[in-house]
Design a binder for these strands. Sequence first.
DNA 1: CAGTGAGCGAGCTTCCGCTTGACTT
Length: 668
Amino acid sequence: MKLVIVESPTKSKTIEKFLGKEYKVLSSFGHIRDLPKSSLGVDLEKDFQPKYVIPSKSRKVISELKKESKKAGEIILATDEDREGEAIAWHLSEALKIENPKRVVFHEITKQAIEDAFRTPRELDMNLVNAQQARRILDRIVGYKLSPFLWKKVAKGLSAGRVQSVAVRLIVEREREREKFQKEEYWTIKATFLKDNKEFESFLSKKNGKSLEKLEIKSKEQAEKIKKELEFLPYKVSSVEKKESVKNPFPPFTTSSLQQEAWNKFRYPAKMTMKIAQDLYEKGFITYHRTDSVNLSDFSLNSAKKFITEAFGKNYHSFRKYKAKGKTQEAHEAIRPAYPEKRPEDSGLEKQHFKIYDIIWRKFMSSQMSQAIFDSVAIDISGGEYEFRSTGQTLKFDGFLKVYPMKFEETELPDLKREDPLNIQDILPEQHFTQPPPRYTEASIIKQLEENGIGRPSTYAPIISTIQARNYIEKDENRRFKPTEIGIVVNDILVEHFPVVVDIKFTAKMENELDEVAEGKDTWEKTCRDFYEPFKKNLEEKYEEVEKKDITDKPTDKICPKCGSPLIEKLGRYGRFYACSKFPECKYTESLKKDALDVPCPKCGKGKLAGKRTKKGKIFYGCNRFPECDFALWDKPTGEKCEKCGSLLVQKGKQIKCSNKDCDFKKK
DNA sequence: CAGTGAGCGAGCTTCCGCTTGACTT
């Protein structure tokens, strides 16, 4: 018997089918060894020697694998062909004490590819393993050295890391841009012209042959003055430009683009999308859902061709290969339907699962289709020193849009020729204001991180959860991210005192060095040393330099009701609170009541409801006289009362409903 | 994932990346 070990149980099931009876395929369920959770686990005196432990969760897996490996005549490690996959293989060989592990990698889960791969096993690539170790150790040092610094200088329980701190930084910086932003008024001038009893729209575009800048018309007066000038001018067509324009289809999904589209189309949080994708993957509907690759297997390309040709005709099909921009560690395919001929409507899937499968199927199928073709026309109309421009487009050939519908405007312009005279019908000045850059959404922050190479497919969703759990950021009323006060304070400390680590380019620089290690041009120890030596020196200085009080404390003129000493305003993990200046002798604290709603408690009538947090960080609304009154709700009360039963109404998502479980009252 | 909590400073917290599961002393 030959034992094959892969990292995922679903992968093990599928490849077992392709291998003969003499193979047994088992799964490691991801990494099986790691640095210990409760200590640094890196010997800084001995060249960063890591101490690996087997977490309790992996204990059972390992003992099972050990048992089987003793029976096996040969052990083959078939984890993914990337840094992490190579490291898992190495950890397995160490933990299971495998003498001469055979390492096998394949890019595609087909009989042919797997058989080929098994005919050409190689040895473990220790350079690649060492690049992973360097990555792991650097992340551990950054996280486990910076976090305690924050505990000491700001508040306990805080955290910092190569990835999360940059994510928070982006959100804080965006907020600052918004605060700094001064909106500017500007005007555009829209006109309607008439030709053969057909009206069409046009926008003022030039004056004296010079393009009008966006902010050139600044006020109503200015706009009205131009309007007056425009009213009595003679107009004629000065140019007609007709051409074809094309729109190409999009590449198939990666984890990141799937998460973005699921948010943009359905407002699904990344975590939810991943849960649904996991189900679809386990049930065999889609390929692996944690990937940064846009590659497609030959099998899938042929299936797509067959499907498209049969369903829509040959002219709708077009072979397309996609390449990821930038660096990727391509161990998988893009996310695509496992069996492209299985159309969403025939899948038997429902609701959320249907919606996610549907966009995966459409994105994949359309990626192999022809471009859409538009007839577009641009018409310039001159009058005196002014010029208007009208643009129109009509769809000539839908191509991939047949499967992947997109909103676009179709406007048909009348058939005009140069020198045609025109009458102006209506002149409409329109007021606009420049807009501040928008707050990040789950979709746009993931996009931004990915573009900077920060985080991996398996971590985008957890990153978003972590920085919310730490209370660094929160969602506003439009489910967009804004930083909290503690988030801003922590970010500013990191940016001021540890600029190297929270540099947006830090990850990219690290990746370059890891590549050197992977290519054997550099050692992992040197990579760690080059980072750690200056980091250590800086950290020591900052422990001296930075004063906690300066960051968290503000004096107040309030007096402690318990002992009469002054109260101080302090900043904790969950925001500001008042505390007695005589702490620890007097432990009096008081909430700042910023989060109290203007909703009286329906139980005691004396208190008000206030937003609070459970120990796990989940928000609920409870009476501010707790513990004397224990009234609490999960959903945010609106302040109104139910028409049916008189209980409080609450906001649940978009819906307003009654908080009384036995009452079915709903609104909107 | 089906129930909610009073301490935030004083003590065991924290990283990133791979993968699913849930008795263990």
